[in-house]
Amino acid sequence: MPPTDASTDAGTARAPRIGPGSGPGSRVGTGSDPGAGTDCEDTLDLRLPDELIALFAEGTGSRAGAPGGTPDGTPDGTPGGDDLLDRVGGWGPVKTPAGVLHLLPVRAERDLPLIHRWMNDPAVAAFWELAGPESVVEDHVLRQLDGDGRSVPCLGALDGTPMSYWEFYRADLDALARHYPARPHDTGIHLLIGGVADRGRGLGSTLLRAVADHVLDKRPSCARVVAEPDLRNTPSVSAFLSAGFRFSAEVDLPDKRAALMIRDRALRDLL
């Protein structure tokens, strides 16, 4: 496949109202056995995950990445109780061939101006659809920060310089799971490369591979990392393939036709 270009790294695309931060109509997930789905066969398990049952039973509503920390004193981005993403804020640095990447859970008062500027880049806006006043980006981010922890937005700092925006989400607990055979603990990734100078040189693929493997290392119960770039964004699909994801299927989402990309734990050393 051809190398990535600016539109690739800028637009590893979000599925509006399907990915992280979607509303209460999001589909609950598909089981909780950490050993399930360790191969790469796409199958469907219809059992509710234990942590979701516990979440409903206890009525918890932890605040992922809330500015200033959470009421129980846990750090930003590491909600107390049953964190659905294994405390993203505590995953630590990601070593990549391009440098050391730190994933910093978003703090609205600190990060919104920068994210807003990136979202208004035409190459980004074409796929993320979050251009406009800062309130548009604020609403998108706060839906995640005020949610139940199934989605965590992060700023990516490469060797100390903020240069990317990431969203990590429980794909099996998301509305996306209505559109593919989800497995327990499937973890979704969205990526935006912010700086124009960082696009078009394969950096997106480099970071995607390193971060996807970091997810698998930090989430032992997760057997697959998934993504759903817009099929029209051929360079983006190519970037995921170069990062060791495999093309699984075309899926019709409400706002786009997407390529379902999967990086399997079982195949990580082969792709």
Results as ranks from 00 to 15, higher is better:
Val136Met: 03
Asp213Asn: 15
Arg219Trp: 00
Leu85Val: 10
Thr38Gln: 15
Asp252Glu: 12
Gly61Tyr: 11
Ala123Tyr: 00
Leu241Asn: 10
Trp118His: 02
Leu267Gly: 00
Arg246Met: 15
Pro235Gly: 03
Thr12Phe: 13
Gly73Ala: 08
Glu167Phe: 00
Gly244Gln: 03
Pro16Leu: 12
Thr43Glu: 10
Ala239Val: 06
Asn120Ile: 05
Arg27Phe: 07
Asp252Arg: 11
Arg265Gly: 05
Leu271Glu: 06
Pro153Met: 04
Gly59Asn: 08
Leu271Asn: 08
Arg117Phe: 01
Pro105Asn: 12
Leu216Gln: 07
Asp82Glu: 13
Ala259Gln: 12
Ala98His: 09
Val251Gly: 08
Ser248Phe: 06
Leu191Lys: 12
Arg257Ser: 08
Leu176Pro: 00
Val94His: 07
Phe168His: 04
Leu46His: 13
Ala108His: 15
Leu104Gly: 02
Lys218Tyr: 00
Thr38Pro: 08
Thr60Pro: 01
Leu271Lys: 03
Asp146Phe: 01
Pro122Lys: 10
Leu207Glu: 05
Phe168Met: 06
Ala212Arg: 02
Gly244His: 05
Gly204Pro: 01
Leu260Trp: 07
Ser248Ile: 00
Arg263Gly: 03
Asp148Trp: 08
Phe247Pro: 12
Trp128Asp: 10
Tyr165Glu: 09
Ser242Phe: 00
Gly25Arg: 14
Val152Lys: 05
Arg14Leu: 09
Gly59Ala: 08
Arg170Glu: 02
Ala259Ser: 09
Asp269Leu: 07
Lys95Asn: 11
Ala175Trp: 01
Gly11Thr: 10
Ser151Gln: 07
Gly147Pro: 02
Pro34His: 09
Pro235Asn: 03
Ala212Glu: 01
Ala249Gly: 04
Gly204Asn: 01
Arg14Asp: 09
Arg257Asn: 04
Pro181Asp: 02
